[in-house]
Design a protein around this nucleic acid. Structure first.
Ligand SMILES: NC(=O)c1ccc[n+]([C@@H]2O[C@H](COP(=O)([O-])OP(=O)(O)OC[C@H]3O[C@@H](n4cnc5c(N)ncnc54)[C@H](O)[C@@H]3O)[C@@H](O)[C@H]2O)c1
Ligand SMILES: NC(=O)c1ccc[n+]([C@@H]2O[C@H](COP(=O)([O-])OP(=O)(O)OC[C@H]3O[C@@H](n4cnc5c(N)ncnc54)[C@H](O)[C@@H]3O)[C@@H](O)[C@H]2O)c1
Lengths: 251, 251
DNA sequence: CCGACTTTGTGCATCCGTTCACAAGCGGTA
DNA sequence: TACCGCTTGTGAACGGATGCACAAAGTCGG
């Protein structure tokens, strides 16, 4: 508690360490997009591309060019007018702002279907997120290596998280276990949690939780299907009063 | 045009095709939360809870009570002042708005680590999203049943998607294959896509894509770690000029 | 060295979503 | 029936994000 925002109004920004002030001001939505730009730019760098314009990059990232420029302006002015951006330069600045200059050790809890997939996934270590610890309660799993890391018992979570300096905890347990696992991660000092269990986690203010809820994603898609169907229906209603499946819509 | 609010004092006017107009106006963010409320409410219903107030429900869903009420107001007025909401009633209305009154058949493409986890996951069918088709290119996988469904070759995607009336396609292939898989899904008539590959997909306007990008999620968490570390540093700088790990921050 | 051309960075208007605050409406109670 | 306390539903203010449009600032060819 008490670690909410609050202070910061008094200074009319005479900022010396400009980056810190900037970082604080970057909208969350822009942070998410910066991560996407970074991935696109990394791909370009790998293909030997040296420079890119906001137009090109925005196309590749699937956003509006003006928004891209604004997003980039949050982290500083690293473009060259009339030319564009140096890919390498942009990559390194985005990495710096996102805190990717150091590795973030990841622990996965719950090595079931999803936990196995995550532990085996090769995409994280390469991007600065080495998976360094796996936990479960299932006796059959303890000691078994998954993706090269042996599974530990959940009871060892505090000691091991501290030892391996875990900064991100991933919860892939069944829903009923999620809150208790979360609590354990928090008391082990983990301040960032990625939660796959369809549960709303209660955490202290100093802990950041992001959730990935596939059922919710699907339901959002479902909503759009329904909306589309309705639109189609309200058009065809002028024809015959029938919905898409021939279902009568409010006759 | 005409689909906005408009009516001011004549609020008692019960619109005829009110739901369609409403559905169109629901902000995307609210839709995502409605899905969460639905899950919480379903849990309550299972436990025999009959009624709930906006305060209780908002707590359980981890949101502000006013926001919850506004979200619910997008779908209609189904509460009782002075009392609260009937759980069953709310469930059925949210389901209706989200289009969950009918099943949405799901196809998963790319039956690797992640695809296996998704195919085996029992949480979808129970929520109205039966997985009815699996596709891959790997000859060793074709015909093998995963989660009860045999894997088909990707070349059969059009025929099978049409036959099984797939409405949601899930892409879990390696990134280079994602766009081509997406194109095939689209030409098979699939209008909703959930993409796990870290790639920006290009689709026609009538197709809805949602992406789940775990690397991006982690990078957002990383950003918050970095921000936190900076805050700590700028405080402790007043003490000893040292950052959290004893690393010197701008001495 | 200049002028034409290109692209960035950003002020500004707009839009969308969140939050506040309170009147309206309902059930319970005397 | 009339009053009281509680909770909903929503107008209105606010804040944050988006998109536009253009001046500023650079390159490049002559
Ligand atoms: N598999 C998917 O595709 C998928 C999709 C969406 C959501 N999810 C969610 O992800 C979570 C995991 O799904 P899954 O399919 O991998 O489940 P799973 O049952 O295959 O695996 C769960 C694992 O967690 C372990 N576990 C149980 N209690 C534990 C505890 N207290 N501490 C540590 N480990 C514990 C179990 O031993 C098991 O190995 C669930 O919450 C599920 O709802 C999964
Ligand atoms: N596993 C994870 O935890 C994880 C995490 C984040 C992102 N992802 C992403 O999800 C995707 C899948 O990851 P994975 O670990 O399951 O990969 P994987 O390599 O285990 O599986 C990929 C599967 O796709 C199949 N495939 C390849 N090309 C195909 C095509 N054209 N059509 C149909 N199938 C094809 C392969 O045969 C393989 O079975 C990747 O894009 C990955 O970046 C995975």
């Amino acid at each position: 508690m008490a670690s909410q925002r609050g202070e910061g109004e008094t200074t009319t920004t005479p900022l010396e360490p400009a980056d810190r002030e900037r970082a604080r001001a970057i909208p969350e939505a822009a942070v998410a997009r910066l991560a996407v730009y970074l991935r696109v730019l990394s791909g370009m760098a790998d293909q030997g591309v040296n420079a890119v314009s906001s137009e090109e990059l925005s196309q590749a990232a699937g956003v509006n060019a003006a928004k891209l420029r604004k997003d980039l302006s949050y982290i500083g002015s690293y473009g060259t007018r009339g030319v564009g951006y140096d890919v390498e330069v942009l990559v390194s600045h985005i990495e710096r702002i996102l805190g990717l200059t150091r590795n973030h050790s990841v622990a996965v809890v719950g090595i079931g279907n999803l936990g196995h997939a995550l532990a085996n996934y090769g995409g994280f270590p390469g991007r600065g997120f080495p998976v360094t610890a796996l936990f479960d309660v299932d006796a059959d799993l303890i000691g078994v290596p998954v993706g090269g890391i042996p599974v530990n018992h959940i009871d060892e979570i505090t000691a091991i998280c501290l030892e391996r300096e875990v900064s991100i905890g991933v919860i892939a347990t069944p829903p009923p276990a999620a809150q208790s696992v979360c609590d354990r991660l928090v008391s082990a000092g983990v301040q960032c949690i990625l939660n796959f269990a369809p549960v709303v986690l209660q955490v202290p203010d100093n802990v950041e939780v992001r959730k990935v809820d596939l059922a919710v994603e699907m339901q959002i898609l479902s909503f759009h299907v329904a909306r589309r169907a309705d639109e189609a229906a309200s058009v065809s209603v002028d024809n015959n009063g029938l919905g898409v499946d021939g279902m009568v819509i409010r006759p």
